[in-house]
């Protein structure tokens, strides 16, 4: 990076950004922190409650269940989408007229409003009317998303894979095409087989993009709300109620400000924590 000059007037440049983001971040967070340590019995009367809400949340079975579901979901998602995305990127042509076509079509799911994604899959999975539902039932599976938690999970996971794998594909592809031909030529001359080429050339060169991909997919799947909510509403029962869905239920549905606030902070901290770990790993490579 070029030498940067020391200049505290630079703060003038960042003020618009700071104001806009702080307005949206600091004020609401302060409100949340406020609520998290207070109790109300209505009529805008608040009493100090200390860390009570936090204890309640951390001990509540409901929270544990949501967290467990969330972790399971995120784990499955990462385990499928990352390898799948890399695999698809590896098989894509590097040059030629089909490349833009492929990229445009693959990027399409990424630009569909999330509720439409949920609605689309809702229709798609209906047992008698949707393509997926009809076909699966014809084959012999007893497939009904509104009744079977397994079917619901299957559909939610499949939907997310459909929705977001392309992000991994595009990132991995960007990393792959940046590898100069000479590396492949040298590997040929060195007598390296396909797997050796993948292991020693392609994978290392994709390391940075893959870290971004994993980080983004972890964050976004951990915070997921709209698509599963529109698809299953969190059900059947609460079998697909992930953390965000549960939180919104408590906050906007039940207006339990205290517990909602405490849960929000815990949620935020978990997300931040894991993301920070990834960020440190990522920026360790950025030191040029």
């Amino acid at each position: 990076m070029a030498i940067r000059t020391e200049n505290n007037k630079a703060w003038l440049f960042v003020i618009p950004v700071v104001l806009l983001v702080a307005f949206n971040a600091v004020v609401p967070l302060m409100t949340v922190v406020n609520y998290s340590v207070q109790e109300t019995f209505g009529d805008n009367l608040f009493f100090w409650h200390g860390l009570g809400w936090f204890e309640d949340v951390l001990r509540s079975e409901r929270f544990h269940a949501s967290l467990a579901r969330q972790l399971l979901f995120t784990g499955i998602i990462l385990a499928i989408e990352i390898p799948l995305g890399v695999m698809i990127a590896l098989t894509m042509p590097k040059k030629g007229p089909w490349v833009p076509v492929c990229l445009v079509l693959m990027a399409l799911p990424l630009l569909i409003p999330w509720n439409v994604v949920g609605a689309m899959w809702n229709i798609f999975a209906l047992p008698e009317i949707g393509f997926l539902g009809y076909v699966l039932n014809e084959i012999g599976f007893d497939y009904n998303m509104t009744q079977s938690p397994l079917a619901a999970w299957f559909t939610v996971v499949l939907m997310d894979v459909w929705h977001w794998t392309s992000l991994v594909v595009l990132l991995a592809y960007a990393g792959l095409i940046s590898i100069p031909d000479a590396y492949y030529q040298a590997a040929k001359i060195d007598g390296a087989g396909r797997f050796a080429v993948f292991r020693h050339i392609q994978l290392p060169k994709m390391k940075q993009v893959l870290t971004i991909a994993i980080l983004l997919r972890f964050m976004d799947s951990f915070m997921i709300y709209t698509e599963p909510f529109v698809l299953t509403g969190g059900g059947p029962g609460n079998s697909t109620t992930f953390l965000s869905i549960d939180l919104v239920k408590i906050a906007l549905g039940q207006f339990d400000l205290g517990p909602a606030a405490a849960m929000s902070l815990i949620y935020f901290l978990i997300t931040l924590g894991v993301s920070w770990v990834f960020y440190t790993i990522m920026t360790r490579h950025d030191v040029r």
Binding site: P180, Q185, I189, A192, H200, P204, K205
Partner: peptide, 24 residues
């Protein structure tokens, strides 16, 4: 063949780089 820019296997040590063609 030696190319215009160094083509080496980043993840390996110098030893392993040199050994690569022989091991293959």
């Amino acid at each position: 063949q030696v190319f215009q820019f160094p083509v080496i296997y980043d993840t390996m040590t110098v030893y392993d780089n040199l050994a690569f063609p022989l091991r293959n």
